[in-house]
């Protein structure tokens, strides 16, 4: 079935922008192995660290939020994040599902 909360997330992103908040959209752009969520799953993050949606069911969100806040502080528009089991960092983050995912984070403006 189609991903569930897309409209809710999209509408929330628009409302945050209307309230002059800086917003990042994170999208799962590819997955391998047993990643929990399918490609296209989304999450939005604002500069205060508030977020809605998820990209992995809890495994890598903390890192995505951190990277998103970082993105808002610099001049880049987007960044591609890779999480993978062979990556020590990913184990620390708890990607227990044994899969790899790529997450694309981009500013909304």
């Amino acid at each position: 079935m189609e991903n569930l909360h897309e409209l809710e997330i999209t509408e929330k992103a628009i409302s945050w922008i209307k309230f002059n908040k800086k917003v990042v959209l994170a999208t799962v752009i590819s997955t391998w192995g047993s990643s929990p969520f399918r490609t296209g799953t989304k999450m939005i993050i604002n500069e205060e660290g508030d977020f809605l949606g998820s990209v992995s069911g809890g495994c890598v969100e903390a890192n995505v939020i951190e990277e998103s806040i970082e993105l808002l502080k610099n001049n880049y528009q987007f960044k591609k994040l890779e999480f993978n089991v062979s990556d020590e960092n990913a184990w620390n983050l708890g990607l227990a599902c044994g899969g790899n995912i790529s997450v694309y984070i981009e500013k909304i403006n």
Partner: peptide, 14 residues
Amino acid sequence: MKIEILQEIVKKKS
């Protein structure tokens, strides 16, 4: 991504 794209997505989905 431009906010206009998000607005268009909401419109098209509805």
